[in-house]
Design a protein around this nucleic acid. Structure first.
Lengths: 345, 345
DNA sequence: CTGTTAGCGCGTTCAG
DNA sequence: CTGAACGCGCTAACAG
C-alpha cells in the first residue's frame, strides 16, 4: 500500500508538498499540484487515517454505546432507526461510528471509558435513559464531548429527546375527546425517565380535563405483551373499571388487545386503546392500533449533528440544553368510537 | 492525558521498559515491573490505541457495512440481533466495530472501500445478500479479510448463513404432514439469494412428497404485508386454489392472515399459514403464527468469530467455506389442523 | 512556492 | 535485565 513518501518520490517533490496538496493548500503551484495528483492516482494513494489521527489528535470517529436494557425498553425498530439516522449524518460529515452493545450498564460504562481513554473516539453518543445513569457521570468526569439520546434526570447534559410528556398528554387528550373517561395507564419501569415523562403527560391531560388522577388505574410493569395483559387482568379482578388504556409501549397495547378479546370487549366501542412507538407491524392488528409515532431516525441524526457541531466548536456543547422532537399521534381504529377520521397509514 | 514517557519518567525507567511491562515481557525484573505499574496507576495511564495501531499496522477494529435493502429484506429485529452477536464476540476478543449504514449498494461499496484503504479496519463483515454483489468483488480485489453474513451466489467466499433451503423444506414438509396439499409460496425478490434458497426448499419438499411444483402457486413480490395480501388476492381471482401458504417473510404471513379474514377462511382449518423470521410480535397474532426462527444473534457472533480467527491465522480464511446455522420451525396454531402439539413460545 | 526538521505515542530492534 | 535509537505515516513550524 502506497504511502505519502512513495507519492512524493514519484512526483519528484517532498512529502510535505504532497501533504499540502491533499490539504488543498493554496500556496502550491498549479503545475506541482497536477504532478502530485497524477502520482497519487498512479499508485492509488489514499492517506492512512490512523497516522492522521495520531498527528492531529482527532480520530473523526464517534462512539455509540448501548446496554441491552435500553434496546428492550424502546421496541426494537427504534434502535436500528436511530443508528440509520446517526450513520447518515456521520457520513455527511465524513465521520465514522464505533459501536458497542453491552449486556448491562456496568459493561457499558467500562467500554465507554475504554473508548475515551484509549483515544479511539472524539466524542460519544449514548442512549441510556435510566434515572440514575453512571455512564453520564463517567462522561462528565472525563470531560468528553457527548450527547444523550433521551433525557438525563441527574446532571444537566446536552440531549435530544422526543417530547414524551407532550406526546402522552395528547394521546390521553385524544382518548378524552373520544368520550373515554376512565383511562387506565400501563407504565414501564419507573427507573426509566421515559416512563416518568409519559406518566406525567397522562396526568397532565387528566388534570386539564378536571378529572381525578386515580392511582388504582395506573400500573407499572416490565415491557412485554404478557405483562400488559396480566396488569389489566389484575386491575379488572381488583374491581377497577376502565374504558380505555393508554399503553406506554406497543407491547402493552398488544396485551390490551388480547385482554379485550379475552373479556369479550369490543375495541374501540367498549375499550379504547392507544399505544406508544408505532411499531410498523401494529398497523396490522385488529383493529389497527392508534399509536404515538416516535421520530427515531431524526433522533439519531440530530444527536450526531449536535455532537459534530460541538466537536468543531466546543461552545456549542452547552450542558443543560435539551432538544425536544415532536411525536405524532397516529390515529387508527383502536381509539375511534366517535367515528372520527382515520389518518392514512 | 498521560503518555508512556510520563510513566517512564515517574518510574525512573525508559519508555521501552514501560512498553515491555505493558506487553507482559518476562525479561523484566519483578521489582521494576512493580515500580512501573505503580507509576501507571498514579498517572492513570492508558495506552493510546491510535499510536499502537500505527506502529503495529493493526487497528483491532472490524468494519460492518450494510445498505438499507438488506435491512428491509430481513425483518427488522434481525439487524439489531446480528449486531448484538457481533458486538459480544468482538468484546471477548477486545476488538471494536466500525458501523456504516448506506442508502444503496453503491454507497456501501464506496464506504467499504474507504474503510479499507484508509486502513481504519483489519477486516470486514458484510451482510448483503444480492445475487450480484459488487461489495464482495471489491473486498476480493482489495485482498481484505472478510466474512459474509448470508450467501454469495458469485465468487466463493467465507460465509455464515442460516440454512434457508433446509428450513424452507422443513416448513413445507410440516404443512404437508398437516394434510395440506395445495401450498402456495410467496417469494421475496428473486435478486436476493435468500429468496432463491427458500424457493428451492419449498420445491424440494414437494418433489420429495411426489407432488407437482405448480408455478401458478408461486408468486414473487416485495416485502410488505400489503404485497402479500394482494398476491393472494390475485391468485384467488385467477382461479388458483390453495389450502396453505408458505410465506417467505412474516410480513407476507400477516398479509395471508388478513386474506383469510377477508375471505372468511378459518385458519388453520381452511388455510394453513407458515411465516419466516419468527418476528417476536407474531406470537400474538390470531391465531399465533407458525414461523421459522432465524438465529440472528448467532449469525453475527459466528461471523465475527470466524473473522477474528482468520485475522490471527490467515489460513483459516478459506473462501468457499460456508457455515450453515440451523433454523428452527416454531409450530403454533396457524398451521396446526391435525391437533398436533404447539411448542412453547 | 517548496524542502528540511521535528514530533504525534508507541513498539522493536540492537547493544550492553 | 534495561536503555538508546529508529521508524510507523503523516502534519506543522521554520527556513529559504
Amino acid at each position: 500500500m502506497a504511502t505519502i513518501k512513495d507519492v512524493a518520490k514519484l512526483a519528484g517533490v517532498s512529502p510535505s508538498t504532497v501533504s499540502r496538496v491533499i490539504a488543498g493548500s493554496d500556496r502550491i503551484s498549479e503545475r506541482t499540484k497536477e504532478r502530485v495528483r497524477r502520482a497519487m492516482n498512479e499508485v492509488n494513494y489514499v492517506p492512512n487515517a490512523i497516522a492522521r489521527s495520531l498527528v492531529r489528535s482527532r480520530t473523526r470517529t464517534v462512539g455509540f454505546t448501548l446496554s441491552r436494557r435500553a434496546d428492550q425498553a424502546f421496541s426494537n425498530p427504534f434502535f436500528s432507526e436511530v443508528l440509520r439516522g446517526m450513520s447518515a449524518t456521520a457520513q455527511r460529515w465524513d465521520h465514522d461510528i464505533l459501536l458497542s452493545i453491552s449486556l448491562d450498564e456496568q459493561d457499558e460504562k467500562k467500554k465507554c471509558l475504554q473508548l475515551i481513554r484509549e483515544r479511539r473516539v472524539d466524542g460519544m453518543i449514548i442512549s441510556t435513559s435510566r434515572v440514575q445513569d453512571e455512564v453520564i457521570d463517567v462522561l462528565i468526569r472525563e470531560k468528553t464531548p457527548f450527547v444523550v439520546i433521551g433525557r438525563s434526570a441527574g446532571a444537566p447534559v446536552l440531549s435530544v429527546n422526543n417530547d414524551n410528556v407532550e406526546a402522552s398528554r395528547r394521546a390521553t387528550k385524544h382518548l378524552l375527546e373520544q368520550g373515554y373517561r376512565k383511562i387506565a395507564f400501563i407504565s414501564g419501569p419507573r427507573d426509566l425517565v421515559v416512563s416518568l415523562d409519559r406518566g406525567q403527560g397522562y396526568e397532565k391531560a387528566l388534570v386539564e380535563a378536571e378529572l381525578p388522577v386515580e392511582s388504582k388505574r395506573i400500573v407499572e410493569t416490565d415491557f412485554s405483551e404478557e405483562a400488559g395483559f396480566a396488569a389489566l387482568c389484575r386491575m379488572w379482578e381488583a374491581g377497577v373499571d376502565f374504558d380505555a388504556v393508554l399503553a406506554s409501549d406497543d407491547l402493552f397495547a398488544l396485551g390490551a388487545l388480547r385482554f379485550a378479546d379475552h373479556m369479550g370487549l369490543r375495541v374501540p366501542e367498549e375499550l379504547g386503546i392507544v399505544g406508544f412507538n408505532d411499531t410498523p407491524m401494529m398497523t396490522h392488528t385488529h383493529p389497527p392500533l392508534t399509536s404515538v409515532r416516535i421520530l427515531s431516525y431524526e433522533l439519531g441524526a440530530e444527536a450526531m449533528e449536535l455532537l459534530l457541531q460541538g466537536l468543531e466548536n466546543r461552545e456549542k456543547l452547552r450542558p443543560g440544553k435539551e432538544i425536544l422532537l415532536p411525536a405524532e399521534l397516529k390515529v387508527r381504529q383502536s381509539s375511534l368510537r366517535q367515528g372520527g377520521k382515520t389518518e392514512k397509514q
